[in-house]
Amino acid sequence: MKRWGLGLALSCVALAGCLSSEGFVTSSGVRVNPVNADVFEVAARPGQGVSDFWCGAGDYAWRALGAADNERVYVVGGAGPGVTSDSKDTMQFSLKQPGDVQGATGRQGKWGPHVGRNYFVGDARHQCNQMFRRFLP
């Protein structure tokens, strides 16, 4: 039984993300939870930066939603308290433009990208590489 659990854990790390009962988690610990069919919420760990939000959004869009690297991922809710977790630092994203989604907070956060800001999914995923470089000697 322990071998199976270790294998699953290693598979999640190798894939850079895993969908569990606690939602989707990137290999760097960024959590992503669906809010509804169009909106998902990214919760970065304390002390993390804006690149963590984009990493989580891009990785989730690509791995969990099957979005292509050339699709856009949009901020639909700026930085603030989570609706799917007790995290104080979350942002909401969608593959649809802010005016085309229901159920997003739509808030303009006091920091981070504003509602409507967008990246290609591939560029957002590239932010995960930026995160790992912070930890390399």
Rank of each mutant, 00 (worst) to 15 (best):
G77K: 06
E41Q: 14
A57Q: 05
A14S: 08
V101F: 05
M131A: 02
L15I: 04
V32N: 00
M1V: 08
G29W: 02
N129M: 12
R3H: 06
L19Y: 11
R134E: 11
L19C: 11
M131P: 03
R125Y: 05
G99K: 06
A61W: 08
P113N: 09
E41V: 12
K88R: 13
C12Q: 09
L95E: 03
R31Y: 02
G106C: 04
W4C: 02
P46M: 10
D123W: 08
V30L: 02
E41A: 11
P34H: 01
S11I: 06
G56L: 05
Y74D: 05
G23C: 00
N36V: 10
G56C: 09
T90W: 03
T105Y: 02
A61V: 02
R134G: 04
W111G: 10
G56E: 08
M1S: 03
V121G: 11
R3S: 09
R117F: 13
L95F: 05
L65C: 04
L65F: 01
S27Q: 05
V50M: 14
G82S: 09
Y60D: 08
W111Y: 13
P34Y: 00
Q102L: 09
V121C: 14
G17T: 07
E41K: 10
A64Y: 06
K88E: 15
E71I: 07
P137H: 06
G49A: 11
K2P: 03
V75R: 04
G78P: 12
T26S: 01
L19T: 11
D86R: 08
Q102Y: 07
T90R: 01
G17W: 01
R72M: 15
Q92I: 11
N36Q: 09
V50F: 12
R63E: 00
G47E: 05
G82Y: 09
Q102V: 15
W62R: 05
V83Q: 13
G23N: 03
A14P: 01
G78I: 02
G5R: 07
Q130N: 08
Q130K: 07
K96A: 13
Q108N: 11
G82L: 08
A124S: 13
Q48P: 02
Q92K: 11
T26R: 00
D52S: 12
N36Y: 06
R133Y: 12
G99N: 12
P113K: 08
C55W: 10
C12L: 14
T84C: 09
E22W: 07
E71V: 01
H126N: 15
Q48K: 14
V121L: 14
A61F: 06
K96R: 15
Q92P: 15
W54T: 01
T90K: 06
A43R: 07
T90F: 09
Q130A: 04
L15P: 02
D69C: 13
V30H: 00
V42T: 13
G77L: 08
P137K: 06
G56T: 09
S11C: 12
G5L: 11
S85C: 12
V32E: 01
G17D: 04
R134Q: 14
D89K: 08
W54V: 05
P46C: 07
Q97H: 05
G82V: 10
V39T: 10
N36P: 15
G82Q: 13
A16R: 15
